[in-house]
Write a protein that binds this DNA or RNA. Structure first.
Lengths: 186, 186
DNA sequence: ACCTGAACACCGTTCAAGT
DNA sequence: ACCTGAACACCGTTCAAGT
């Protein structure tokens, strides 16, 4: 329930925000969550104070970085809800989710943590995706194709916490498949 | 292939080593991997140089802390190898593994990472446990009860990376069960 | 309202000096 | 052979001063 309209940012603030986000993407893509936060400010060409003003914490920045992907995934979920094969839809979506996590590797752990704790900016950023995925999942559960004792958030947390291959960043070996397989009711 | 006999440590070195290990256990039990490494030296009442001499890296200390558990798990695996129900044995062992991971929470991620990268001190410390668990797993695979495309190390890495409940530190909700379930051949 | 960068604090790691 | 602790470097975070 955030207010519907937010005052537009001042021009320089907007510019800095965008620069920081771009810098963040460039630095945190492909593995390195350990890049000093400071670097983001440097790369964006702004003072650290500005960085902290826009992103009080690393997690806030990560959440912003991921939000594009979140949009994509949300749309994908909406599309798949019309598909005939419930199970196949789930598989396909989770595969895309995994590929997305692969793109920003180090962040997947943060994603996982954020999703479970619920109060985090991560959780907030993921909310839209989460709820449209929930539809997909619950539909499968209603049809008895998936065990009832798992929620959308938990499942997402699980998948994003899977150990990832250092090369391509995707969940290693048969992990995703094991999880999918394990979702069938026992 | 390490040399069979290692020169015994000098008395003071031994004493310091033990004190550091004890301090490490006390500090890292129950969640906090983020406790400054420095604190370990302080708590043990030795200089930092001494800490670094005995444990060049956090991971070395963690490996040492876990080694007791590793012994327990190794023995458990040996016991279970004689049990009739292959599947039940696997379930029981992995459950104990999960409870062990729960005891030193923050370390489970490190464990998971260490297991996959293979060169780490973690991997070395876990070697005995790993191989006796492998017997258990391979037996189940030979009988066709478990899918063949998973190795012992990978499975351990998977389980130790599961999101954990902040309260009791065990794998959350139905995650362990999902993984177990997913191990059955599709 | 927003930006800057100096300043402080904390922590990891090393190494010269000591026994 | 081992220990100590001061010293350095790096990084996170804040805040007084500026526009």
């Amino acid at each position: 329930m955030t207010s519907a309209t937010t005052r537009p940012m001042r021009a320089d603030a907007r510019r800095n925000y965008d620069a920081l986000l771009a810098a963040g993407k460039a630095l945190y893509a492909g593995g390195g969550v350990n890049v000093p936060f400071e670097e983001v400010a440097k790369k964006a060409g702004v003072g650290q104070g500005t960085l902290y003003r826009h992103f009080p914490t690393r997690e806030h920045l990560f959440a912003a970085i991921l939000s594009e992907r979140v949009g994509l995934l949300e749309r994908k979920a909406r599309d798949l809800v019309d598909s005939g094969d419930v199970w196949q839809a789930l598989r396909e979506w989770l595969d895309l989710y995994d590929r997305s996590a692969a793109e920003y590797r180090g962040m997947s752990v943060q994603l996982s943590d954020g999703l479970v704790d619920g109060e985090s900016p991560m959780a907030a950023a993921c909310a839209p995706m989460k709820s449209s995925f929930a539809v997909l999942l619950e539909r499968a559960q209603a049809q008895g194709a998936v065990r009832p004792d798992i929620t959308a958030v938990k499942l997402l947390a699980l998948v994003s916490s899977l150990p990832r291959d250092p090369d391509h960043g995707r969940a290693v070996g048969p992990f995703l498949d094991i999880v999918l397989n394990g979702l069938r009711p026992s």
